[in-house]
């Protein structure tokens, strides 16, 4: 063998490539590298999903589970008006939250990326500061802000804008949307920031050179090129908020209840695991469809914008 063959798979005398030994093959090494994570994900993610999936086709008789196959749970989940209402509301809330979050996060990410100068790291660090406290505390603090005797009400009263505290602030869907938008802001800022960082600044100069003012070059170059970040920010916020049940429970009141609260009730007080499972699976499917639809729409819009 000459030195020229180095780096390429060894050749046999008749020139046929022999497969490298299994332990040295690239795919095996790759698999070995991810296997701890993969095992972890399999055990803690895939298995529970399979269990949930299986339960959704069973029936619960008080404390025992009847393992006969049935679609009755799905029939209930998809026909009972209460569950449909909750599902729609959850989708609506998560869609609004993700839109608001992205719209609010984009300027922040843009500022850090384009005007952060040498302080980018500091800015990002400041953004993560709220995450030093627990999620529950952050939700509770919104209760303090929006409550009957809360910061907002006393502030507005102090300014003489309202004469008595408003009850319209807390315990409804808008309270849920406000709280979730704040809670997820950092998760939207980071992916948008990363995609803005990747936008070659010369491209923006080129757009300017070809006659575009700041707004046009933003719409025609910066925004389309940061679309991947916007899409991931949307999905990162949208998917988990559909299933959020702490926030609606704490600030949502009876108007702010979402599908996850119903699912929790089925697994808890109502003790109907199969129905809870069916609701979970339905939500998962609907969320996946909605996420796919959102990606599709953004891609189509980006294509049209050219």
């Amino acid at each position: 063998m000459t030195a020229a063959a180095e780096g390429s798979p060894p050749l046999t005398a008749d020139g046929i490539r022999r497969r490298p030994p299994l332990l040295q093959s690239e795919s095996f090494q790759g698999l070995a590298l991810i296997s701890p994570t993969l095992l972890y994900a399999l055990i803690l993610l895939l298995l529970p999903i399979l269990v949930v999936f299986a339960h959704s086709f069973w029936t619960q008789n008080y404390l025992t589970i009847d393992h006969t196959f049935t679609l009755q749970n799905y029939r209930t989940a998809l026909t009972e008006p209460i569950y449909l209402d909750l599902l729609w509301r959850s989708l609506f809330v998560s869609l609004l939250v993700s839109l608001f979050t992205v719209v609010l996060a984009y300027p922040i990410a843009y500022f850090i990326s384009f005007h952060g100068g040498s302080h980018k790291g500091l800015w990002l660090f400041l953004i993560t500061i709220p995450f030093w406290t627990s999620y529950l505390l952050r939700v509770m603090s919104w209760k303090v802000i929006l409550g009957y005797n809360g910061v907002l009400n006393s502030g507005l009263m102090g300014l003489g804008l309202i004469s008595e505290p408003s009850t319209a602030l807390l315990y409804n869907t808008s309270a849920v949307i406000i709280t979730l938008t704040h809670a997820w802001a950092a998760f939207a800022i980071l992916p948008i920031f990363v995609s803005l960082e990747k936008v070659d600044r010369t491209l923006i100069e080129a757009a300017k050179d070809l006659g575009d003012g700041p707004l046009r070059s933003f719409l025609r170059v910066t925004l389309p090129l940061s679309a991947p970040g916007v899409i991931s920010a949307l999905l990162i916020v949208m998917i988990p908020t559909v299933g959020d049940y702490v926030t609606p429970k704490l600030v949502g009141g009876k108007d702010g209840v979402m599908i996850a609260n119903a699912i929790q009730a089925q697994f808890g007080k109502a003790s109907n695991w199969p129905l809870g499972a069916a609701l979970s699976v339905t939500t998962m499917v609907v969320v996946s469809l909605m996420a796919g639809g959102a990606v599709f729409l953004i891609r189509a819009a980006a294509r049209l914008a050219r």
């Binding site: 070659d200 050179d209 003012g213 050219r306």
Partner: peptide, 21 residues
Amino acid sequence: VPANRRPTNMVFQSYAIFPHL
């Protein structure tokens, strides 16, 4: 006068070809 209002055009060293077009 900003670059977008000047009667000059530039060929950039990195070419700056818009990757999405």
